[in-house]
Design a protein around this nucleic acid. Structure first.
Length: 440
RNA sequence: GCCGCCUUCGUCUAGUGGUUAGGACGCUGGGUUUUCAUCCCAGUAAUCACGGGUUCGACUCCCGUAGGCGGUACCA
């Protein structure tokens, strides 16, 4: 059987990170089995519909590299892939059930007549005894279910009805979704049965929760997936981090690629307990990816990220200096802005150094700098100022921190000599002079 | 209320009856480093929700309880 998975978000806003998380597993499972990954828009809630979201969903999947095989914008043989354009389809199947006497009209809506006898059992691919984790059998009493609306009075189907019709018509082989749908499984199974269809396989994923341990949603602090892009996270880090939420690598790996995950993926490695999204660990992982990235690649990523940066074409030499100092692409700016614009001096910064007479010390530095023969040599530079430190009876540490402050206005910067080289000798002298004037 | 899912360090997790309950993030301390960071080393932290069984032996199996979350919508 061909493997076909689907991500079926409802366009009610920018997709949050939980949607991206589910898409990851749909995508990975499809790719692992040379199957198809499908995007279907479930825009059946006219009230909550947000026009922008379809575009943002595409953008999110594209950013993460989850290439869809069939979708509203891409098309496919089972389309349309947007439910508002399939109203006649749902109507047709609703009529079929009406004819069979399995559904009835009620105040303008069409409702499904649940059989409340017995119970519904199915096998879920996620969870199971700790010892095997081969999935679990779930059974729910049918008496817990009520008749439910299939077609609303506005002519739109409900999720409960449309997802069954579309999953069958689009030949979805594996339904991967959040476990908030487990309780409704009797509805879906009975629907499949009433049409004489074989249900697909089901994998109900654990819930992603917010800091309050409630299901992740906008209200509960869920950030939009694209916000992470804006914040300077790398897609590789996001994917890797998401993969580790509820799922674990069979070899215990912490850092691994999407390709690697596709090779080893198995539902049995899911932990069915809810997981909390800890952004601190994401930041660590993002830093990890940044450090492992070749300089050229990181330069390119930074340039793509820093769209409005005035000097983005000139950042290549800076990249090696900041690579181990940033966790997110956005960290580049505060760390390097002194290289592109004059610093604003603050006496507080200078006062942190154990130097009595800042002004005269800076003056001495300026003199020494003027005497250095061009081009400046790192060893000579270092030697010169160590001597000056001894002469002024201050520590080497304070000496170099003073130079750093004079040149950048800060006490934390990329390596000093390299930064000075990027600034240029003239600019460096100018800044030291300005610092001296400021200290007066 | 009823039904379902879940319960291992603060967080993400490993764990297939016998382990000093392992790893990662975080945090703390130390080393390298002219700042910061990186890197390295060490440490911290889980009476495995609780109570009963079963067993020579239970985090692992069974029963129960509690708690959390989810569902119980013409939301998805």
């Amino acid at each position: 059987m061909d493997i076909r998975t689907r991500i079926a978000p409802s366009p009610t806003g920018s997709p949050h990170i939980g949607t991206a998380w589910q898409a990851l597993f749909d995508f990975v499972f499809a790719r692992k089995n040379n199957g198809k990954f499908i995007l279907r828009l479930e825009d059946t809630d006219k009230v909550r519909f947000v026009p922008e979201s379809a575009k943002q969903i595409d953008e999110t999947l594209e950013w993460l590299g989850f290439e869809v095989d069939e979708s509203p914008s891409k098309g496919g043989n089972f389309g349309p892939y947007i439910q508002s354009e399939r109203l006649d389809v749902y109507r047709k199947y609703a009529d079929e059930l009406l004819e069979k006497g399995l559904a009835y009209n009620d105040e303008g809506a069409v409702k499904f007549k649940m059989n409340k006898e017995g119970s519904t059992a199915y096998h879920d691919l996620v969870g199971g005894e700790q010892s095997s984790r081969g999935g679990k059998d779930i059974s729910i009493e049918n008496s817990t279910q009520d008749d439910f609306v299939m077609i609303k009075s506005d002519g739109f189907p409900t999720y409960n009805f449309a997802n069954v019709i579309d999953d069958h018509l689009m030949e979805i082989s594996h339904v991967i979704r959040g476990n908030e749908y487990i309780s409704s499984m009797p509805k879906y199974i009975q629907l499949y049965k009433s049409f004489g269809w074989t249900p697909p396989q089901f994998a109900h994923l654990p819930l992603l929760v917010g800091s309050d341990r409630a299901k992740l949603s906008k209200r509960h602090g869920a950030k939009g997936a694209l916000e992470y892009k804006r914040d300077g996270f790398l897609k590789e880090a996001i994917i890797n981090f998401l993969a580790l939420l509820g799922w674990s690598h069979p070899q215990g790996k912490e850092i691994f690629s999407l390709e690697d995950m596709i090779k080893v993926f198995d539902f049995k490695n899911f932990n069915p307990a809810s997981a909390y999204f800890d952004e601190t660990k994401l930041e660590w992982m993002n830093g990890e990816y940044i450090r492992r990235m070749p300089d050229e690649e990181l330069t390119k990523r930074l340039q793509d990220y820093l769209v409005d940066h005035p000097a983005k074409e000139k950042i290549a030499p800076i990249v090696p200096l900041i690579k181990e100092r940033i966790k997110k692409l956005s960290d580049f700016i505060p760390l390097t802005d002194f290289l592109f614009e004059k610093p604003e001096y603050d006496m507080e910064v200078f006062n942190k150094l154990k130097i009595r007479d800042i002004k005269s010390a800076v003056g001495k530095i300026l003199e020494k700098v003027k005497q250095l023969k061009s081009p400046w040599d790192a060893k000579e530079f270092e030697g010169t100022f160590k001597e000056l430190a001894t002469e002024l009876k201050i520590s080497n540490l304070d000496m170099f921190q003073l130079i750093r402050a004079a040149v950048s206005g800060q006490l934390v910067t990329p390596p000093l000599f390299e930064s000075i080289q990027i600034l240029g000798e003239e600019e460096t002298k100018n800044r030291i002079k300005e610092a001296q004037e400021f200290a007066s």
